[in-house]
Every structure is written in structure tokens, then in C-alpha cells.
């Protein structure tokens, strides 16, 4: 299976130049063709594993703990206004 590098790059929000596109597309197709080996296996009745341990029902109590982390976070943020983070707007049609 081949991937559409432009679509995946947009979905990943990574801008690629033409040279990178060619190289990465090539690398990734090579890897994708390697992983085709999984098709040899009959896995119709196999359950997928998302967690290797059979842990379940891990909760926390509904308790508020005031955190001061925001002060340091805002101090190092790329752009703030008061205690807001500031980001560029979406420019329509750009």
C-alpha cells in the first residue's frame, strides 16, 4: 500500500519541501512494504492488545488540589496576554 505523502503531511501538520517529500515517501513505502509480512498471519479470531497488563478500574477521588504550575508555564510560554496564551488567528483562504 502506498501513502499519499501530501495528505499525511497535512494531517500531521508538518510542512515538507519537495526534496523531503520524495525521500520520506520513499522511506515510508519501504517500511510499509516490509510490514506487509503481517498479512501472512491468520488473525481473524485474535483479540488486539492495547494493554499488556490486565489492569482495570483505576480511578482517582474527586478532590481539588490547587496547582501553581500555570505560573511557570505562562512564564516560559511563546506568547501570552495577561494570563492568556496568545496564538495567531486563522486567516481565511490563506
Amino acid at each position: 500500500m502506498e501513502m499519499d505523502i501530501n495528505k499525511v503531511a497535512l494531517l500531521s501538520r508538518i510542512k515538507l519541501d519537495e526534496e523531503e517529500k520524495v525521500k520520506l515517501q520513499n522511506d515510508l513505502n519501504q517500511i510499509l512494504s516490509y510490514v506487509e509480512q503481517l498479512n501472512e498471519l491468520d488473525i481473524a479470531d485474535v483479540e488486539p492488545t492495547s494493554h499488556v497488563l490486565n489492569l482495570e478500574n483505576v480511578y482517582r477521588e474527586d478532590k481539588v488540589i490547587q496547582s501553581e504550575a500555570y505560573k511557570e508555564v505562562l512564564k516560559h510560554a511563546p506568547d501570552i496576554h495577561g494570563s492568556y496564551f496568545k496564538v495567531p488567528k486563522v486567516i481565511e483562504g490563506s
Binding site: V64, I65, S67, A69, Y70, V73, S83
Partner: peptide, 19 residues
């Protein structure tokens, strides 16, 4: 464990998890 109270100063009802 951040508070859910409405109307606080921006970004103060947060922990590293909510950020």
C-alpha cells in the same frame, strides 16, 4: 485535580494534566 469552578482567572484552574 484542577477545580472546575466557573469564572476564575484565565489558566489558573489547571494542572500539568489540563495543560
Amino acid at each position: 485535580s484542577s477545580s472546575t469552578q466557573f469564572g476564575a482567572e484565565p489558566n489558573t484552574q489547571t494542572t500539568e494534566v489540563s495543560f
